[in-house]
């Protein structure tokens, strides 16, 4: 094989690989990316049913209830504009508590509640997920 041809072949291979990777990645993104919602978003845009999404906000004070099976917890996530009841089975994260930020991963139900399969929590504003921080900030500035 001539040097020029080899360079061309390698170049084409590389381009094909990159295109293939991008195609694969983008098609997978369409089905696998999980969108982020705040309770207010859901009120405004409707329930994203059938999708694995993230729900972010604050755990409403006084809303945490433990179920009789001992491992399921119910609580309310709020962003100051709306509330979403959440159910989660599992050990809640270390930094999960009333009045602090939380991101729940899971699916919305038809009745507007949310079943989480994972919870992420940060303990104060310094470690708050930027997404939640952004949403909370928005809320604050919107309020008169």
């Amino acid at each position: 094989m001539k040097a020029k041809h080899q360079r061309l072949t390698l170049g084409l291979l590389a381009v094909a690989a990159v295109l293939g990777a991008s195609g694969l990645a983008l098609s997978a993104l369409r089905t696998q990316a999980s969108f982020f919602y705040s309770p207010g978003d859901v009120v405004r845009d409707g329930l994203p049913l059938g999708h694995h999404v993230r729900l972010g906000g604050m755990v409403e004070k006084g809303s945490v209830r433990h179920m009789p099976d001992g491992i399921t917890v119910r609580f309310v996530v709020t962003d100051g504009k709306a509330q979403v009841p959440v159910r989660f089975t599992g050990v809640t994260p270390d930094l999960f508590r009333e009045g602090s930020g939380v991101v729940a991963e899971g699916e919305f139900q038809r009745d507007g509640s949310f079943i989480a399969d994972n919870l992420l929590a940060k303990h104060d504003a310094r470690y708050m997920p930027p997404q939640v921080a952004g949403k909370m900030h928005e809320t604050k500035t919107l309020q008169p």
């Binding site: 991008s22 990645a25 993104l29 696998q32 990316a33 999980s34 982020f36 993230r54």
Partner: peptide, 22 residues
Amino acid sequence: IGTLYPLVAQGFGVQLSVGKPF
């Protein structure tokens, strides 16, 4: 792509995350 996509989407006002399934 998986790591930057959420940032790009955020630029368009959509918040999402890309995780393990992807």
